[in-house]
């Protein structure tokens, strides 16, 4: 065969030698029937379960973000005097809580795709038949569960430390927490995938994420302040619930559809 000219000619590798099959140890060469195609959500759940399992084994991100949110609560107590009866803690509570949640959440989000880097696991996931959207959704679901767990514990700690009553509007409070946490998770997970191969990964993620989260966080802060103050969701703050719903839906769709740009090079 001649040396290829510039630009490359076509080559064919045909037939040829078969390596001598080596004697097999007593094995069961019988292979599974037909591999089926697991559904999109099944794949996502498989990934989520994997992430949760390995996080729960080490609890690295979980412990760190819990400790971090408690530290933030502690620091806030120096920003104003919680014992001063003239100060109505309910006026700050929303902002205080969501600042702590958003900062603590970033710790989990940073770990999310970084975990895949260690042994080039991300390559194996992307090469698998699972669609990139399902990989994203799975990782987002795992982050969602982790961040939500941290939030629920922190909320309890917050209620005790700052003597805030969470019971009156607990139902709506949970709804707001679920929606906002999903917003944090979708943006955070997408940007975690975006920054995973960059130098300064840990710096890039918060720089990109926080300005993006201003609409949902603003909505959450207003709603949470209202709810902790005992004010129910009514016509005048319903608009913020709508902002959260719209944000969640639109960015979830965008992320699932466009994530393969980021994951498949």
């Amino acid at each position: 065969m001649a040396k290829a000219e510039r630009g490359g000619a076509g080559f064919s590798l045909q037939g040829g030698l078969q390596p001598t099959p080596q004697p097999m140890p007593a094995l069961n060469p019988q292979l599974p029937a037909e591999p089926h195609s697991p559904s999109f959500f099944r794949q996502a759940l498989t990934i989520a379960a994997k992430d949760l399992r390995s996080e729960l084994r080490t609890k690295e991100a979980l412990n760190a973000s819990l400790a971090f949110s408690v530290v933030i609560f502690l620091l806030f107590s120096f920003a104003f005097d919680p014992g001063n009866l003239d100060i109505d803690i309910n006026e700050f509570s929303g902002g205080l809580l969501w600042l702590a949640f958003a900062f603590a959440g970033a710790l989990s989000l940073n770990r999310s795709f970084a975990r895949e880097l260690q042994n080039d696991c991300l390559d194996a996931l992307v090469a698998s038949p699972a669609p990139p959207g399902a990989l994203f959704l799975g990782k987002a679901l795992a982050n969602f569960a982790l961040i939500l767990a941290v939030e629920i514990i922190s909320l309890g700690v917050f209620a005790v430390m700052y003597n805030v009553h969470i019971q009156p509007q607990l139902g709506w409070l949970i709804v707001v927490m679920l929606m906002t946490t999903w917003a944090i998770t979708v943006i955070g997970t997408a940007f975690s995938a975006l920054t995973v191969n960059l130098r300064m990964r840990e710096l890039m993620l918060p720089i990109l994420t926080y300005p993006f989260l201003i609409p949902p966080l603003m909505a959450a802060i207003l709603l949470t302040t209202d709810l902790l103050g005992g004010k129910p969701i009514s016509a005048d703050n319903m608009i913020w619930v709508r902002v959260l719903v719209a944000f969640d839906v639109i960015f979830s769709l965008l992320a699932v559809v466009f994530i393969d740009i980021v994951l498949v090079g």
Binding site: I187, W240, V243, V262
Partner: peptide, 25 residues
């Protein structure tokens, strides 16, 4: 190019959110 295109799409959609929600504030 790929990463920044992804971010640009997210960014422009979010401009609408930022603009509207801060206006309601």
């Amino acid at each position: 190019a790929k990463l920044s295109a992804f971010l640009s799409i997210f960014g422009c959609v979010n401009v609408a959110f930022v603009y509207k929600s801060i206006e309601w504030f």
